[in-house]
């Protein structure tokens, strides 16, 4: 093998190694002036959780602990309780009495969202969750539960950071995931807590069409 060949090989290898670098050099710079500017996040971005409500203000969470059971990081703690008959918190017999997520442990896998039988827990685009102590990283039910108008709580340290306008487009995907996980079944309630209660139409289907009732 000659020296020339060696040199050629070396240059070629160098070119190979710098190929990515050179390619990037030709592209425009994309530095975003975060937090002054926000970048649009992908639709299926996994941000922090919220606990949703029905239109009438009832909580969707029934305290079933399926999210806690499925959580690979064991960061969710739920306790159910008997729904007060005169002032029910959620439809049916049971509601989530305690609901806590330790955001330090959460790996944002969204298995809790998949497991939820009532679409009570969904994920948002909110990701700014810095806290100054560990205790504050445990989000309680009060903090997770959406406001009566359906928007997430303004956490004290999110307020000046989060882009709330973005949320409307964000969690729709998860909310539309029907209980059975199949678009065909959107609109078919996955469970009926008791006669008449909770038998309300589910959210608009994944396919974007209106629920069609029993035709399945």
């Amino acid at each position: 093998m000659s020296e020339q060949q060696d040199l050629f090989t070396a240059v070629a290898n160098m070119w190979k190694g710098f190929r990515v670098t050179f390619r990037q050099m030709r592209k425009p710079r994309v530095t975003t002036q975060y937090p002054k500017e926000f970048r649009e996040k992908p639709q299926r971005f996994h941000g922090r959780h919220v606990l949703n409500r029905y239109d009438d203000g009832m909580e969707k969470c029934i305290g079933c602990e399926l999210c806690a059971g499925v959580c690979p990081a064991k960061c969710i703690y739920v306790r159910g309780a008997d729904n007060p008959i005169d002032d029910p918190v959620s439809p049916g017999e049971r509601y989530g009495y305690v609901y806590e997520i330790n955001m330090l442990r959460c790996i944002f896998c969204a298995l809790c969202v998949e497991a939820c039988p009532t679409e009570a827990i969904t994920m948002t685009h909110l990701f700014e969750m810095s806290t100054t102590n560990r205790q504050d990283a445990i989000y309680t039910k009060d903090e997770l539960l959406v406001q009566p108008d359906g928007t997430p709580n303004h956490m004290f340290d999110e307020d000046h950071l989060a882009d709330f306008g973005e949320l409307a487009a964000a969690d729709g995907w998860m909310r539309a995931t029907s209980p059975q996980g199949r678009a065909d079944f959107s609109g078919v309630p996955g469970w009926t807590p008791s006669a008449g209660v909770g038998l309300r139409p589910a959210e608009q289907g994944q396919s974007g069409t209106e629920p069609e009732g029993e035709d399945a």
Binding site: G92, W191, T192, P193, S194
Partner: peptide
């Protein structure tokens, strides 16, 4: 049989 397994104590 009602499908209220999520709230049923036997669920699981």
């Amino acid at each position: 049989h009602p499908l209220d397994c999520p709230v049923c104590d036997k669920g699981g």
